[in-house]
Design a binder for these strands. Structure first.
Lengths: 246, 246
DNA sequence: CGACACATTGACCAGACTCAAAGCTAGTGG
DNA sequence: CCACTAGCTTTGAGTCTGGTCAATGTGTCG
């Protein structure tokens, strides 16, 4: 049997590629220090120089960049199985912060151990690299959505993405999933004001495409939502995408 | 002496890390088929499954994602030395297109040869991986700029970024550099309409911070431009960043 | 009950969009 | 050498999406 953190990593990596038995074994032997982070608390800050990588075990986190006027832009959400600062392995200084939007558990894995692992398992280098490439694809898509979609389409797109990513690690219940973020945080992710984010949520609800309340989302009509958002799951490069459109 | 394409790759990689002599040698032996691309022409299209990677030798290209209504969002610019589709090594299907905005020369390097190179030079795996991570950081920053900066700040930010990236590969002349894109393309990069992009360019010119004309940009007051754009070069993770602000 | 955090509304404002029409400039054919 | 075109840039006028400010609900917790 595997331990909690290796189970999650493996599930994540299997969603994007193939994990050999040997690699599975090696992942299981990674040491990890578990840690809790609470709502609104920063796990890592811009400018930090981490010596370990974080693996999300439970909860929900997000990365953001702060601006001069005190506002911020959330640049990605992190669900269990994600390693939000994997980049710190190769890039010394963090160029963004990571915060938790609810009580989350993370496993901290020292760089040294990951480096040793990657040396012994070249198979994993490919998979981890692939993971960073998929992350980049997600950012690209956020640029597209932020730059060219209307607020309600953008929100719909984010919901489609989260649904697909949750499903990839088996964390959906039917067509609903956890989204424990306040509307103000949603606003920071969409590049909107909090007031307009609220109106945007109401618009989507009014369309009957989703239910959003008390920290979780239920998608009522996935196909329609995806079409509306112009969501094409290709960019997530998952092994078994969940395209339901048309 | 090195050939044209390896010279550029090496300069690029040296800007972000250290290249061993052995790796240098191996890079020099990469086979490459040179190719010209002309203004407006797609080098690679969304949905393609490339079997080689492109290295920009000269000119200027950009990546974009097309939307349902015929509009598009440019998600990144590519200067000489960049490998805009390095990801195709690990991700089968392209989720964006790459087009040239002027006459450009690219070198096509077969995946097989790159894979062989990476097996023999683990040092290069780190560097290439680091390159993809830096790319991701650039996307993140674009999300931030698109979501939270005003149009003129956003334009200023893009100019600061390009200046820093050009400088890293030694392609600036004093404080000016080539930007052979029409304002309509700038608009697609900034997520603006062409009309507003024009007004935004005029605003920056009016401030006396930059000159922009006939496909090239001269930065008149770098410090002020960087401050205005809230540009912090950390995210480019270059070895010798060009921070001039205060 | 009061405090706090979050969601919701209303009224008004502004940055950016659209449509439409002119300028400019380099290149082409006569 | 000039009229003509094509591709860009620039301007003007009216509209709209999303922003700001300021209240007002609502729910949870001590």
């Amino acid at each position: 049997m595997h331990n909690r953190h290796s189970n999650l990593i493996i599930r994540r990596l299997e969603a994007i590629g193939t994990v050999t038995d040997e690699a599975r074994e090696a992942l299981d032997n990674l040491p990890a220090r578990e840690r809790e982070v609470f709502r609104g608390q920063d796990l890592i800050r811009e400018g930090d120089k981490p010596t370990e990588c974080m693996l999300v075990l439970s909860g929900f986190l997000y990365s953001y960049k702060a601006l001069a006027d005190g506002t911020r832009q959330i640049v990605s959400f992190h669900v269990p199985g994600d390693m939000p600062d994997l980049q710190s392995l190769f890039i010394e200084t963090m160029d963004f912060s990571i915060a938790s939007s609810t009580t989350s558990t993370v496993a901290a894995i020292p760089h040294d151990n990951i480096r040793k692992l990657l040396r012994s398992q070249p198979n994993l280098v490919d998979l981890f690299w692939r993971d960073t490439l998929i992350n980049a694809a997600i950012f690209r898509t956020w640029v597209m959505a932020t730059g060219r979609l209307e607020a309600s389409e953008h929100l719909a797109h984010v919901l489609c993405e989260l649904y697909a990513r949750y499903e990839a690690v088996g964390l959906t219940q039917d067509t609903s999933f956890a989204l424990p973020v306040a509307q103000a945080e949603l606003a920071d992710a969409l590049g909107l004001s909090a007031v307009h984010a609220n109106r945007t949520v109401q618009a989507l609800r009014g369309e009957g495409m989703v239910e959003m309340e008390a920290g979780h989302v239920t998608i009522l009509e996935l196909g329609r939502l995806q079409t509306f958002a112009q969501f094409d799951p290709t960019y997530l490069h998952l092994s078994h995408p969940t395209k339901h459109s048309k």
